[in-house]
Each structure stands twice: as C-alpha cells, then as structure tokens.
C-alpha cells in the first residue's frame, strides 16, 4: 500500500455509527476508502487493549465512534 494511504481501524457502535455507515452506503455517498470497520455491539464494549492491539498490528490510526 502506498505510504500516504493509511489504514484507519474503526470501531463502530452497532446502533449509532455502524447504522450511519450503513445508511451512507445505502445512500451511495462517497467517502475515503481508508477505514477498516469493526462492528462492536456498543461503544461500552470498547477496551483500551483493542486500540493498542490494533496499533501494534500495524494500523496507522484508530477511530472509535459511538
């Protein structure tokens, strides 16, 4: 992958941002292809170790969204 195409690991809440992402897809909106989505049941499922494990395994950034 090119140096300036970062991988952004995204943890999206099932009920909020994941829904928004779904809607964006259904509405055929365009957005950068750099995000890699992981659906979590709720932002409360988030744990600091997910973030660190993601960075450790080479993600360029982590985004948590409720």
């Amino acid at each position: 992958m090119a140096e300036n195409e970062p991988k952004i690991l995204s943890f999206l809440c099932n009920w909020c941002s994941y829904g928004a992402a779904d809607l964006a897809g259904v509405s055929r909106m365009e957005y950068p292809p750099n995000i890699r989505v992981i659906r979590i049941p709720c932002t409360g499922r988030m744990n600091p170790k997910f973030i660190l494990a993601g960075l450790r395994q080479g993600a360029d950034a982590v985004w948590v969204s409720g």
Binding site: C16, S17, G19, W63
Partner: peptide, 17 residues
C-alpha cells in the same frame, strides 16, 4: 492524530461521511 473519538447517530450518514 492517531486516535479519534466521535459520536454519530444512525440517522446522520452525512455527518459520518
């Protein structure tokens, strides 16, 4: 810039984008 938090409702696809 490596870690971001945000809050997007499921109806806000424009905000998501």
């Amino acid at each position: 810039g490596r870690l971001h938090f945000s809050w997007v409702s499921s109806a806000e696809s424009t905000k998501f984008v």
